[in-house]
Design a protein around this nucleic acid. Structure first.
Lengths: 207, 207
DNA sequence: GTTAAACTAAACTGTTGAGTTCAGAAATGC
DNA sequence: GCATTTCTGAACTCAACAGTTTAGTTTAAC
């Protein structure tokens, strides 16, 4: 059996369908997206679309699962545990912040918030593959710093979540609610510096 | 002219309509809510509803405006500027956290996130009457502390936003994405204590 | 008790969108 | 070439929902 791919798919336009759905769902949400829109965006007939997916709901869940995986990939890289906090935290902060502000990060967040009522699993998966994953990786790093005596942290998981949260200051809601034109680089840097400074102030060991 | 009320309303069931719309919109969002649902919930006929509001959109905006006002009221009380930070901040933290976790706070946030694309003004109003208002009040207080020499803060607005953000640690996303059964009181207290401790660590003056 | 305003219930219109069907065209395998 | 699978497109069903209309009922003011 020369099956290269898992199982279910069996047509040449499968990927087109998925890609079209991705674009439209991320742009318009579940209700907002119409199947006709998706088919048009995918350059595919409705019948073809329905030959792959039994209904809109299943298609949506497929996309959502795929996107949470994609989200997880963006954070899966292990951090260099040997770097000192004041060298590594700014990079981590920048990465978190850039993700939050990216079109992709915004879209996924918006979808997760507004559809996690209709699809309870979606909210949990988003959380696991996003915020929870970040703080897990960060916790591991902070633990090794603490072990080395570079940081003095009591509740490591709380500390990790605090740092991640501090990186969202100002920018998250501003972007989310279009409360401001846009966030320039110096603004971002201010937030990251603030987060790192506050964190090290609290958990850093005096030299 | 013995007009007691502004202008537009002119029937006895006006308040019922608004109340019904409030319940259904906050529960189901704009698309999710049907006008028939609202009329049923309000105990009113559809014709009556349409005698007050020209269409669903206007009704929604009315509710949204009302709810952002309600949200603002929850934070409008001025803080006692004479209290020391370690006495006042825990109370502020508790208030923020309780609001975030309340059904009302959750519902309004969810609506703001998912409908601020369809109704651009809504997002901004939500932001102004919620997060922005909190940090504004908090900034005033922090400024007076700094003036008294009780705190040493460089960028006051940033500090205010940092404190508010620290109060959302863990609980905000957990509740939002139903990632955990529920948040008990000791958990809340841990988050607040963590926020206050971190904040004072960074901005408190050494005694 | 009369009258006018507010309200009701239910049927109606028009639209939109999910999902189906099918006759035929295009690609693919051999 | 020929056969099979995949895809098309357009027309279709069906249900939900926004908004309207109407004939008739309730409320309340005087």
């Amino acid at each position: 059996m020369s099956d290269t791919h898992p199982a279910i798919k069996k047509g040449r336009k499968f990927d087109q369908v998925v890609e079209g759905a991705r674009i439209v769902f991320l742009r318009d949400g579940f209700e907002g997206a119409s199947v006709d829109d998706i088919a048009r965006e995918a350059g595919v007939s409705k019948a073809t679309l329905y030959s792959y997916f039994p209904d809109k709901r299943v298609l949506f869940l497929e996309i959502a699962a795929q996107e949470t995986r994609r989200q997880a990939d963006a954070f899966e890289e292990r951090m260099d545990e040997n770097l000192s906090p004041d060298a590594l935290l700014p990079n981590v902060g920048r990465k978190i912040l850039d993700f939050i502000l990216s079109d992709f990060g915004q879209a996924v967040f918006r979808i997760a918030v507004s559809e996690s009522d209709r699809f309870p699993e979606l909210g949990r998966k988003y959380y696991e593959s996003g915020p929870a994953l970040v703080t897990k990786r960060l916790s591991q790093y902070l633990a090794s710093c603490t072990a080395r005596g570079e940081l003095a942290i009591d509740d490591i998981e709380l500390a990790a979540e605090q740092f991640a949260e501090l990186c969202k200051v100002r920018v998250q809601s501003m972007r989310l609610f279009q409360a401001c034109c846009d966030i320039d680089d110096s603004e971002k840097q201010k937030v990251i510096d603030g987060a790192v400074h506050m964190f090290l102030c609290c958990y850093g060991v005096r030299k």
